[in-house]
């Protein structure tokens, strides 16, 4: 379990996150949603210790603030929003780093499977910096995937923490990546994904955590979170909700708050 208790983050005087208490469970895909600036990415970064925070974070029982990188790396892998690579590493080298950096055994078969899982098989010799934005993003996802390839380790479940994993992907790739995350969770691992797209979140997530201005406004099943009053408050526009036969609740933004024309 990834257990966040009373997590608060402030940047200078500004309080970015306020008393977030949230548990992510193994075997579940938890989507963190909210408007721009609501604190979604900050919540993920705080959970990873990338930004200083108050409160406690426990991953499978380890207090992460007191744990060494080598202890945590076998338990969780991270896909950041954007990764700048300093040298001309190939895609294959980047994916292999997922295991090699932390002194795990290198496993070329795992690397190949991870690349195939994101649709980049056969591209191992490409310079990562010559790939398109979407390919780069999927390449780094393959690296994260290779790092925690078995969703359940002998010591407990493994975790994928993804910051906007589908941000620069086309429709087909979005579904591919979300299906991959879904099957990681179905196999017993835990997935936490910061998501912009509510419809995709509702389609794939077991639970959604919805942030408004740094507070946890709602946590629950997509049906619980996808409620017009909450979403209208968060996004400042009228929203109509539908129910798809396969996809569950999905929303259509209606006439937004009209712009003054003059």
């Amino acid at each position: 379990m990834l257990d966040l208790r009373d997590l608060s983050v402030r940047f200078g005087q500004r309080i970015v996150l306020r008393d977030i208490t949230l548990q992510a469970r193994a075997g579940e895909l938890l989507a963190i949603c909210g408007a721009n600036g609501a604190g979604k990415s900050t919540l993920l970064k705080a959970a990873l210790g990338e930004v200083p925070s108050q409160g406690t974070i426990r991953l499978n029982g380890h207090d992460t603030a007191l744990s060494r990188p080598a202890t945590l790396a076998p338990l969780r892998a991270v896909l950041p929003q954007d990764t700048e690579v300093a040298f001309a590493f190939t895609l294959g080298e980047i994916v292999a780093m997922g295991r090699e950096a932390g002194a795990f055994a290198a496993e070329p078969e795992v690397d190949a499977l991870a690349l195939a899982a994101v649709g980049l098989q056969g591209r191992t010799d490409d310079d990562i910096r010559t790939l398109s934005g979407g390919e780069r993003q999927r390449g780094h996802l393959a690296r994260a995937l290779a790092q925690v390839w078995e969703p359940v380790a002998p010591s407990g479940p493994r975790w994928l923490l993804l910051d906007e994993p589908v941000a620069s992907l086309d429709l087909g790739q979005q579904l591919q990546v979300m299906r991959m995350a879904r099957s990681f969770a179905d196999a017993g691992g835990g997935v936490i994904a910061v998501m912009h797209d509510l419809n995709l979140s509702a389609m794939f997530a077991d639970r959604m955590a919805f942030l408004i201005e740094g507070r946890l406004a709602e946590v629950g099943s997509p049906a619980q979170v996808m409620q017009a009053p909450l979403l209208e408050r968060a996004y400042g526009c009228r929203i109509a909700l539908n129910r798809g036969p396969v996809t569950g609740p999905w929303l259509v933004p209606q006439a937004c708050v009209p712009f003054p024309l003059a």
């Binding site: 945590l72 892998a77 700048e84 040298f87 780093m97 997922g98 950096a101």
Partner: peptide, 14 residues
Amino acid sequence: NALALGEAQAAHMG
């Protein structure tokens, strides 16, 4: 090698 991806990523990789 890992540091080429930035300090945060290197740490997450162990």
